[in-house]
Design a protein around this nucleic acid. Structure first.
Length: 572
RNA sequence: GAGGGAGUAGCUCAGUAGGUAGAGCAAUGCACUUUUAAUGCAUAGGUCCUGGGUUCGAGCCCCAGCUCCCUCACCA
């Protein structure tokens, strides 16, 4: 079947060459973005006035053919470029009947058109009988012939695996997917802009390391042939970035990949993008402000305007529907009302299909709209859940949360042991801090997942945080926070530990009952040496970019926000 | 790693109690110079994930395996 399609298309390829055209085109520098073409359309200039022919505007656009309706001597098609999509009309020229169409050879070329081809047209801009802005072409260029069929025009591609594996088809067939990746770019650019504005500089540190550290995860290993050494792919840039603080770079950040040899899930990809930053003379309180600003302003400037725009479109459609209904109620002919309904559906198709998708329905959008009037930034996470990003976000200490949801004082070793036994988490000889952590995961995290606001969880048990400074008046507490949004850990930050003696001790220590791979205690001698030279007190912050993108684009799977997520290779 | 669901035409999906495999889109041909998920008529397209088994007969039942999705565990 596929072979047959290819054969047919190869025949067309030859036919195109026989006509004297190059099926793979060449430079085409004059096309305007489709969005701009649609915007510049002036209805007044498309209409004839008096005896005169209309003073048509001209337009020039290029894109991929995504819909094709061949009516014999007239072809309607929709083409899509990066900015949008629009209708073009290719007609056989009729002398004496303006506007001009295509003469012999270009018309023959047009008749060889297939879905998926990339084309350019020049012509006049006018509305069709049904009111769609269209370029009526008098010049037609084939820029690239496609040899394989496009995905189904209405449903697109749905299978996550196929969409990831052949992302080009996903992007070509699913505008929602394209939108997600465009928003991803916008969010990252926005982060960069804000950080630059705060005086941070962007640096790149090694991905290949002979000692890994900065997180609790198993690394990927690899080998350098010329030096004949084994290397690790980094699990975090933390220790490199802190060396830069020692060297005198006071505000640094890096947005780049980390690699962790762990399981894959809808929230985990083995390589993922992390924004990590360090600011000298700051602490974790400053990091909270930065986290709030980065995420909140991304939500407000990138996601929210788009959602409010969707809402307005839907409102408009609903309003129009009410008017149409009034009209048709007066009318006596039912078939007319049918026609009007069909026409209405077509005109507002975007809004209706949107309302039908589980991602954005009208009720959810209306909630967002209402909240925006009170100056609240509410955005959906995974389906219909709304999260309120309005600042400041609540701050809760680990101690409070343990008290509130687990009903235990985490400082009381005996009480913790009893609670752990109660929950079936106890193992003899397991360190107190690990028991606390296990109870937290079991009793507190599910509660955090229910909250409709981002939450800062702060002041962790010190044993769990070997790279974090301890509280001056209570060395059992580490000055660390994690930010949970809808149950996902989105940010992690510390007031950085800059005491080389404690750091060395922490690298050497190992908590009783810790499994292999659970520890972030891998000795990095040179890092301790760096600290001995003196690192300014500092705050450090890491934000998982993929997860922020998931939250701000209402995407449930991390594989839908990473262009090429890791997949098992296809077997032939 | 454990549990649940799925795999049928290029894509989106039906499929009866076990009886020779279906639709829409895409493709091919014909008609149509204002269509818009164009329409009408006709044609072609399948190792029903793989391998075994039960049966006169398996897309369907049984066993094993592969892959994907979801949940949990590890983690961000």
């Amino acid at each position: 079947m596929l072979e047959k399609v290819q054969e047919d298309r190869l025949k067309k390829l030859q036919a195109i060459r026989d006509l004297g055209y190059d099926p793979y085109g060449g430079r085409y520098g004059t096309a305007e973005p489709i969005e701009a073409v649609l915007k510049k359309f002036d209805p007044a200039r498309a209409e004839a006035h008096g005896d005169k022919q209309p003073d048509y505007q001209r337009a020039d656009a290029a894109g991929r053919v995504i819909l094709l309706r061949d009516m014999g001597k007239m072809i309607f098609a929709h083409i899509r470029d990066q900015s949008g999509q629009m209708q073009i009309c290719l007609r056989k020229d009729q002398p004496g009947k303006p506007p001009a169409g295509l003469v012999e050879k270009p018309w023959a070329l047009a008749k060889l058109l297939d879905l998926g081809d990339i084309v350019a047209v020049k012509g006049v801009l006018a509305k069709t009988r049904t009111g769609e802005i269209t370029i009526f072409a008098d010049d037609f260029t084939l820029l690239c012939k496609s040899l394989l069929p496009m995905p189904e025009k209405y449903h697109g591609l749905t299978d996550i695996e196929l969409r990831s594996r052949q992302r080009y088809l996903d992007l070509m067939a699913n505008p929602d997917s394209m939108r997600i990746f465009q928003k991803r770019v916008a969010i990252i650019e926005h982060f960069r802009g804000l950080l630059k504005g705060r005086g941070f500089v962007e640096v790149e540190t090694p991905m290949l390391q002979s000692v890994y550290g900065g997180a609790a995860a198993r690394p990927f290993t690899t080998h350098h042939n010329a030096l004949d050494i084994d290397l690790f792919m980094r699990i975090s840039p933390e220790l490199s970035l802190k060396r830069l603080l020692v060297g005198g770079m006071e505000k640094v950040f890096e947005i780049n990949r980390n690699f962790r040899n762990e399981g894959i899930s809808p929230r985990h990809n083995p390589e993922f993008t992390m924004m990590e930053l360090y600011q000298a003379y700051a602490d974790y309180e400053v990091m909270m402000e930065i986290t709030e600003e980065l995420v909140y302003s991304s939500a407000k400037n990138i996601s929210l305007p788009y959602l409010l725009d969707l809402y307005e479109k839907q409102e408009e459609a609903e309003e129009k529907l009410r008017e149409d209904k009034k009209d048709t109620e007066k009318s006596e002919h039912k078939d007319i009302s049918q026609q009007k309904w069909q026409k209405h559906l077509k005109e507002h198709e975007d809004a209706y299909t949107l309302a039908e998708t589980p991602i954005y329905n009208i009720e959810m959008l209306s909630d967002i709209y209402e909240a925006s009037k009170e100056n609240k930034t509410k955005l959906p996470f995974v389906g219909e859940r709304l999260i309120d990003y309005t600042r400041p976000w609540p701050r809760k200490t680990y101690l409070e949360l343990m008290q509130e949801y687990a009903g235990v004082d985490m400082r009381d070793e005996a009480a913790v042991a009893i609670k752990a036994k109660e929950l079936g988490l106890y193992a003899s000889g397991k360190a107190h801090a690990l028991l606390v952590n296990n109870i937290f995961e079991m009793k507190v995290e599910p509660e955090l997942a229910k909250m409709d606001r981002p939450v800062f969880v702060k002041d962790y048990p010190a044993e769990l945080c070997p790279l974090t400074r301890r509280k001056a008046d209570d060395p059992s507490i580490a000055l660390r926070f994690e930010c949970y949004i809808a149950g996902m850990e989105v940010a992690n930050a510390y007031t950085e530990l800059n005491d080389p003696a404690i750091q060395e001790e922490n690298f050497n220590g190992q908590l009783a009952g810790e499994k292999e791979g659970e520890t972030m205690r891998v000795m990095d001698e040179d890092f301790v040496t760096a600290l001995r030279h003196g690192m300014p007190p500092a705050g450090g912050l890491g934000i998982g970019i993929d997860r922020v993108v998931m939250l701000l684009t209402n995407t449930a799977s991390i594989r839908d926000v990473i262009l090429f997520p890791l997949l098992r290779p296809e077997e032939k």
